[in-house]
């Protein structure tokens, strides 16, 4: 291909957008609307997942020992815990540490009256869970170990979080399926309009002796440009909305800040931006190829 032909083709792609501005706007709006919804749900679901994950990370099972259990046996139980797939981390809390923690949390200055450690028999392991849904299996196992006196579990939280996780997964699949269907419907409509606009032009090109490549190229470049524009606009809008909503929620509901740990916008866009642009380019590319392909057999 001549360099002049290459630049002509690129130029035609840009000019096509201006020439068919209503079609271009409709296509940009269609792609933009789909990717806006996609971005919005991605941001919401990522934060949900992040919050749930944070909450999960704090869930642990406490393992207390029989009175008089030797340090060697306690260390053995620790090793057994480390080997379990349900456990991501094991932390040993001595009787002194347990008492210090209790004093700080509940007694404060009133603890001065105690001369001995009332929790002398409270040394335990905190076994943090790799997956909250595995808690029941771990608890059953722990209760079967000799020298284990008691196992404290966080039944309600674990069940709730497992439920939320499953719910998020179902919602994600549902929303993506709906968005996919809506995108296909909107894009096929826009492409149909595009076909009627371009049919004559493609026919003329073919009668004059244009190759399929020559006919297709400007349309493909146009499609890709529309895809890029159609993805960048919603991303810009989401960027602004996201920052504002996070600031608003953080300021307005400051008491929830500990519970609601939002992801920074950079983390969201690290994945969302390239995925959206790739989707926009892909939709634009496929849309234009399909549109032209139907009319190349002239």
């Amino acid at each position: 291909m001549r360099i002049s032909t290459f630049f002509y083709t690129i130029g035609q792609g840009f000019r096509n957008i201006i020439r068919n501005k209503w079609f271009s706007l409709a296509s940009i709006a269609t792609i933009g609307a789909c990717l806006f919804l996609f971005g919005l749900f991605y941001a919401i679901l990522s934060n949900f997942e992040h919050i749930v994950k944070k909450a999960e990370e704090g869930i642990y099972v406490s393992v207390f020992f029989q009175e008089g259990t030797s340090d060697t046996r306690i260390a053995e139980i620790g090793d057994m815990l480390w080997r379990r797939v349900e456990v991501s981390e094991v932390e040993f809390v001595s009787a002194e540490e347990a008492w210090e923690g209790f004093k700080d949390d509940y007694l404060g200055e009133y603890s001065d009256g105690f001369t001995e450690n009332p929790l002398a028999n409270s040394a335990h392991y905190k076994a943090y869970l790799s997956d909250v849904s595995l808690q029941p299996a771990l608890v059953t196992y722990l209760e079967s170990i000799e020298d284990v006196r008691r196992v404290n579990k966080s039944e309600i939280t674990a069940t709730t979080l497992s439920g939320i996780n499953a719910l998020i997964a179902y919602i994600s699949i549902g929303i993506i399926a709906i968005l996919f269907a809506v995108s296909i419907f909107l894009i096929s409509n826009t492409v149909t309009i595009g076909i009627s606009v371009r049919k004559e032009e493609i026919n003329i090109m073919k009668y004059i002796g244009a190759t399929d490549f020559f006919v297709r190229s400007p349309f493909v470049i146009e499609g890709i440009l529309i895809g890029v524009i159609g993805s960048l606009i919603p991303m810009g809008i989401i960027y602004v909305i996201y920052n504002n909503v996070i600031s608003y929620v953080t300021e307005r509901f400051s008491m929830l800040t500990k519970l609601l740990d939002f992801l920074p916008v950079e983390t969201i866009f690290h994945i969302l931006l390239p995925v959206s642009v790739a989707m926009g380019v892909g939709i634009g590319f496929l849309g234009s190829i399909v549109t032209v392909r139907k009319h190349l057999r002239v």
């Binding site: 026919n203 003329i204 004059i208 002796g209 399929d212």
Partner: peptide, 24 residues
Amino acid sequence: KHRKIPKFRRNLGIVFQDFRLLKD
């Protein structure tokens, strides 16, 4: 072959009743 049709048509000049010009 389909891919050879463009080359063939480049040796033809075609004029239609309705002109078939690119309007834009």
